[in-house]
Amino acid sequence: MKGKKKVAGLVIYFILLLIPIYWMLNMSLRSNADILASFALYPKNMTFMNYMKIFTDSSWYMGYVNSIIYVAMNTVISLFVALPAAYAFSRYQFVGDKQMFFWLLTNRMAPAAVFALPFFQLYSTVGLLDTHIAVALAHCLFNVPLAVWILEGFMSGIPREIDETAFIDGYSFPRFFITIFIPLIRAGVGVTAFFCFMFSWVELLLARTLTVTAAKPISAIMTRTISATGLDYGLLAAAGVLTIVPGAMVIWFVRNHMAKGFALGRV
């Protein structure tokens, strides 16, 4: 009985979650004039015109390529630097550890609007403007702290006896860390990778500020659907549907790590 209620609740939640997404899909398969002219539960004059435009116009599809490049860079950098740091925070006491840990998170707390101009100046001074690495580095500002915090939470859930046993058994730190410890927190690494990807993927302001043409992200190109005649809702919806695809693939790849979780007795 209880199990059934759970499933029913979950199904209702997922239906509600999918309705706006269905609406976006519906809009993406209609022309803009059609969307604005009448209400339609499903596209009556179905057209793939909006998708065709995105796939044939290089200034559109290159936006996806650019976004994927800097988001992948950012996710790799974030995980790479955050894993050892999170281990240090979860296992060791050192001068300024608590202050440092909280300071990291404060970098997510400033309203972005006024900070965009100094960011532009900083990255043009170091000559990185309009490159993928500039956006990847700038996004580290909010993704690295998040990665450290999430990973630290998972690492602190692992009993320290595991580390001690491994060191007694003669494991070096890097070997212990890579072959024993990281597999233990797979769920955490999976979630962290997804969140880094996600926050970098949808960020608009910094990505738009730091790029001109060569590295322009899809989220910035989508603002081009606003023109003098108003918004092209159909085109925007099609672009929106396509922005979901790469992230859905990422979560598909990390799903097993998230689901498996913890397995003691590995040592």
Binding site: L17, L18, P20, I21, M24, F194, M198, W201, V202, L204, I218, S219, M222, T223, L236, A239, G240, T243, I244, P246, G247, A248, I251
Partner: peptide
């Protein structure tokens, strides 16, 4: 995860 992946202005 679907809603999280759409750019905010969209």
């Amino acid at each position: 995860a679907l809603p999280l992946l759409i750019p905010w202005n969209t």
